[in-house]
Design a protein around this nucleic acid. Structure first.
Length: 427
RNA sequence: GCCCCUGUCGUCUAGCCUGGUCUAGGACAUCGCCCUUUCAAGGCGGCAACACGGGUUCAAAUCCCGUCGGGGGCGCCA
């Protein structure tokens, strides 16, 4: 049975690259009916923090992953690591220096392994220094604890980032010394920033948490991440994790580094938002709204849901919603200055708004159909294009030159607000 | 410096293994047109790539070699 693991180090938030690594491991496990395990690499006591661990686990779940069995913690296995190191020492394959135990690397050998993604990789041991197994403070080094844990967890496939390629021959040496057959290795290319350098903070968001906060849907983020380095086939790019599980084959993974393209992620996110049900969007959008100064407490879910209907095709991230819909929640919305110059500084436009408002006054059924009828009637009577009334009116009631269809906006806003704002413009 | 990985449109990629079907396909971005009440969404279309140089071959994006470019590693960090 296939057994893979994801081994986060709780010294920071979950990086996009790590999330992608986790995703591919998870996909491989689920596709093959194997197990996906979690191992917490918390040997660095100084930098490890429970807060980071909780966040990482939450983000993995948020992205749609689940894991088999309880996570194991390296910090609880120090005795085992020391024991095994002593064993290697007793076979005279290592030596002590200071309080550390150091593995002797035999020179002049070629270490070869068949990488699932890259093919054959060979390293000469002349390029490998003797390797510390146990540090002077008694804690194990990464390469040593990693091998020991992968052995005890019976990991069959180690799928990790490209940056571990040079660790692999060192680890293979440990497997040999311990008397075990190494698992299969697959090294996936790293995600690069738009400028080609390793994706880092200066490129903007690098942690899953930041994208969550920005209003990316987990389905969209996961979808985008797995598209970076794997092609589902038949030009199908939008796919659920469930579909990906069916189609995924680790052998189809690309061996080329890929640049992170926020534009494509935004497009994908927009696609997911459009397709998402209003009722599912509602709590998420409420949360986004509550992060702003806008007070939405007095608005009913029904009102918000209609608003979502109007704007879900116009946002790429959930965080854009507040800026788009400001005028639906408060009267002191921002006024687009250029639009004002273009539409409201003209006497005839203001006059048209006044006439429109007066005609609306007597309208009992304030529906977008009826409002539109009136608008178009006025346009015809006065030999105008409807647009000549529509644009100034939109600006008057929303402060914006863009947005949803004017008549739907007016219906939702309600007669009272609409008239108040249309008349307010004349003063 | 040494070692390793890698190089198809601006970006993600299909094709490469099993040379001819590739005047290189798709998606994002971009540009134009249509729709239209603006912005989106949607529809249609355009621009745009086999890093370079040598081989091998009747034939190379596909195979081989070299150059150049990009990335990673060389910690008692993980």
């Amino acid at each position: 049975m296939v057994k893979v693991r994801f081994a986060p180090s709780p010294t920071g938030f979950l990086h996009l690259g790590s999330a992608r690594t986790a995703l591919f491991n998870w996909l491989h496990a689920r596709h093959t009916g194997g197990q996906f395990l979690l191992r917490i690499e918390d040997t660095d006591k100084v930098r490890s923090d429970k807060k980071f661990l909780d966040e990482i686990l939450e983000d993995l779940k948020w992205l749609g992953m689940d894991w088999d069995e309880e996570p194991i913690y390296q910090s609880q296995r120090f005795d085992t690591y020391r024991e095994k190191a002593e064993e290697v020492l007793s076979k005279e394959k290592a030596y002590r220096e200071g309080d550390a135990i150091i593995f002797k690397v035999e020179k002049g050998r070629n270490i070869e392994f068949e990488d699932i993604i890259h093919g054959n990789i060979t390293t000469n041991t002349d390029t490998i220094k003797d390797q510390v197994m146990i540090k002077s403070d008694g804690s194990p080094t990464y390469n040593f604890s990693c091998v020991l844990d992968d052995i005890s967890l019976e990991i069959t496939h180690v799928l990790r980032g490209d940056d571990h390629i040079s660790n692999t021959p060192k680890q293979i040496l440990f497997y040999e010394a311990l008397g075990y057959t190494p698992p299969k290795f697959g090294h996936m290319p790293l995600i690069l920033g738009p400028d080609g350098a390793k994706l880092s903070k200066r490129h903007g968001g690098v942690s899953v948490e930041e994208y969550k906060r920005e209003g990316f849907l987990p389905e969209a983020l996961a979808n985008y991440l797995i598209l970076l380095g794997w092609f589902p086939g038949e030009d199908q790019e939008i796919l659920s994790l469930e579909e990906a599980v069916k189609l995924f084959d680790i052998n189809d993974m690309s061996d080329v580094q890929a640049k992170f393209d926020i534009q494509k992620l935004r497009w994908l996110n927009g696609e997911y938002i459009m397709k998402e049900k209003n009722e599912d969007l509602l709590p998420l959008l409420k949360k986004q709204l509550s992060a702003t100064k806008i007070d939405t407490s007095k608005f009913a879910d029904e009102y918000l849901t209609k608003l979502i209907d109007l704007y879900k095709i116009r946002m790429k991230t959930l965080s854009e919603f507040a800026g788009l819909t400001e005028c639906f929640f408060q009267d002191d919305f921002k006024m687009d200055e250029e639009g004002k110059k273009k539409y409201l500084d003209k006497e005839e436009n203001v006059e048209n708004i006044r006439i429109f408002a007066n005609r609306l006054e007597g309208l009992e059924d304030f529906s977008h159909e009826k409002i539109e009828k009136i608008c178009r009637d006025i346009a015809e009577e006065r030999s105008l294009k409807a647009a000549e009334i529509i644009h100034p009116t939109r600006l008057a009631i929303s402060g914006k030159t863009k947005g949803a269809g004017l008549f739907e906006m007016m219906e939702l806003l309600g007669k009272e607000k609409v008239l108040e704002r249309m008349r307010g413009i004349q003063t």
